[in-house]
């Protein structure tokens, strides 16, 4: 317990020290997923990341300017320093200025954002189409178009769940690992159709820059094109009942050859359901 408290103290101090400068420094920490978005693994995720940083910087600058004025005023215009109150209370000029300038700033934000929305929404010309179906509380996947067509499996949390004592830390991928991950080839446009059987879920993989609600009875879609190999983890991002926190998503991005091999293995497996021993997914290439 004391150990714990000491650890906590240390972390508190560390974090508190970080608080002030954190936003300013966040760019350098971009790679460190602890303070900011995870490292992008697709063009879209990178665009989102850039837009996000652009927003932070603009907001930070406005924040510093606006509160620079305020804190200067607090410092200089206080009664205890003998300040005498001026009586002005109107100025059409400044009112117009501080209406027009923010509008211009907003235009500067809206412009790149609009372009990204249009790109995000363009799900045409996909190489591979996968349907992701949310269930309480697991994901079902059907490869319905492109290489691998016909593959179908269910993906559930593989983390052993149980009561943990205070101070007992679980494994690295706790709650973020599944039995049957989604496997996709690198560099291909993958279209994900989302839907659900019971309630709304959401299919979210941060590093790929996608999040799409899965709505029972309806089909929605999103897409990504992974630009590096690796294992990318996500979670269900819409409250879906008791085990909402326990239906993660794991996407393995692999080379085209590995993908072909995986497809072949899966096909074989479904051809011989007797040998249904779960085929291990190829681990990330890196």
């Amino acid at each position: 317990m004391t150990n714990n408290a000491a650890l906590l103290m240390k972390k508190t101090v560390q974090a508190a020290a970080g608080l002030g400068g954190i936003f300013a420094a966040s760019a350098t920490w971009a790679a460190n997923s602890k303070y900011n978005f995870q490292e992008p693994a697709s063009r879209m995720a990178a665009d989102i990341h850039d837009l996000h940083m652009w927003m932070i910087w603009i907001c930070l600058i406005i924040f510093v300017v606006v509160f620079g004025f305020m804190f200067y005023s607090i410092y200089a215009h206080r009664k205890s320093k003998g300040a005498v109150a001026a009586q002005f209370h109107e100025s059409t000029t400044v009112e117009i200025l501080w209406t027009v300038i923010p509008v211009l700033i907003l235009v500067g934000m809206a412009w790149p954002a609009t372009k990204t929305v249009l790109a995000q929404k363009d799900t045409t010309n996909a190489d591979i189409t996968i349907k992701a179906t949310g269930y309480q509380w697991k994901w079902g996947y059907d490869y319905i178009k492109g290489e691998g067509e016909g593959i179908a499996f269910v993906s559930t949390l593989s983390t052993p769940r149980g009561q943990l004592e205070f101070g007992e830390y679980p494994g690295e991928n706790y709650l973020l690992e599944v039995d049957n991950p989604v496997v996709v080839p690198i560099g291909k446009k993958v279209r994900i159709l989302t839907t659900a059987q019971d309630v709304i879920h959401a299919w979210w993989v941060p590093a790929l820059g996608v999040k799409q609600d899965a709505i029972p009875g309806f089909i929605r879609d999103t897409w990504f094109r992974a630009d590096r190999e690796g294992v990318f983890r996500g979670v269900c991002a819409e409250l879906c009942g008791k085990d909402h926190g326990y239906m993660p998503i794991e996407v393995h991005v692999v080379s085209e050859e590995k993908y072909a091999a995986w497809v072949a293995a899966q096909k074989q497996k479904s051809a011989a359901p007797a040998a249904a021993a779960a085929q291990p997914a190829p681990a990330s290439a890196s």
């Binding site: 349907k131 319905i144 159709l193 839907t195 009875g217 309806f218 089909i219 879609d221």
Partner: peptide, 12 residues
Amino acid sequence: PDLGSEVGQIFW
């Protein structure tokens, strides 16, 4: 209309 659309056919 969504339910009866082309994508809607996947479910219905």
